[in-house]
Design a protein around this nucleic acid. Structure first.
Lengths: 124, 124
DNA sequence: ATAACATATGCTTATATGTTCATATGTTAT
DNA sequence: ATAACATATGAACATATAAGCATATGTTAT
């Protein structure tokens, strides 16, 4: 019976059919893989990490971010666009200024866990 | 006194000197940003996500990974190399085969939290 | 209306990275 | 020794992306 299922899921070339069947039965679906990828990609770029970390402390305008992080205005704006489309930050306009803040604390939580993890590795 | 510190840390161009000082005083150091970036980059690539997820279930050889994930052997091998240098997977040789497994449960924990997060978003 | 300013964005360039192909390395069986 | 096999790796190519420049958009003050 189990053999039958394995026969359906695997082809003859399999070296370890059971392993392959097991993986195939437990795979993440494509859209989950895609979303995970997008999320981690969003928080894997050094300048975006700095921006998110800064915003985790307080709401900031583009110009302040640029000045504080030593980036030029255009670069910050481009990265904020990426963070916006990943729904990680939101903003409100106040006159000429755009004040950005985190849209999603959860992602910063992930980032902080990453920080803990790395601090841990460094202690060793 | 506080004004003095701010004067040291900010230049005249600042639009909101206090914000900028605050960020500068609380910045992640460069090496942390770099390490975070490397770690998240390692788990932000679709094929690497699939590989890590598969390995989180059981030890697997290259060929099984390739077959189960529908990738060619070379692509898997290249990605395993990336994961190895990020110290996320380890392997042992057994005859012709190389059996890979996770080196670091913590990173998979991060991945799982990502999955929970996204599932949560999708429910809304 | 005009000037000064804050931000956004299209375009370009430089660089990074994933995949494939061909091949090298190392192992097992005959 | 040779053939078959599993894996690793170098080279080439295609694609993605970050950053800078120039400029557009929208706001405020005069």
């Amino acid at each position: 019976m189990v053999k039958e299922i394995e026969k359906d899921l695997c082809d003859e070339k399999c070296i370890h059919p059971q392993s392959i069947c097991f993986i195939k039965q437990n795979m993440l679906d494509e859209s989950m893989v895609y979303d995970l990828s997008e999320m981690f990609k969003a928080i894997s770029e050094p300048s975006r990490i700095k921006i998110l970390h800064a915003l985790s402390r307080r709401e900031l305008c583009v110009c302040d971010l640029a000045e504080a992080l030593g980036m030029n205005q255009s670069a910050v704006s481009h990265q904020l666009r990426v963070l916006r489309s990943a729904r990680l930050v939101k903003f409100r306009k106040e006159g000429k200024e755009a004040w950005y803040s985190l849209d999603d604390d959860h992602v910063v939580t992930l980032m902080c866990q990453g920080i803990e993890h790395i601090s841990h590795l460094k202690e060793k």
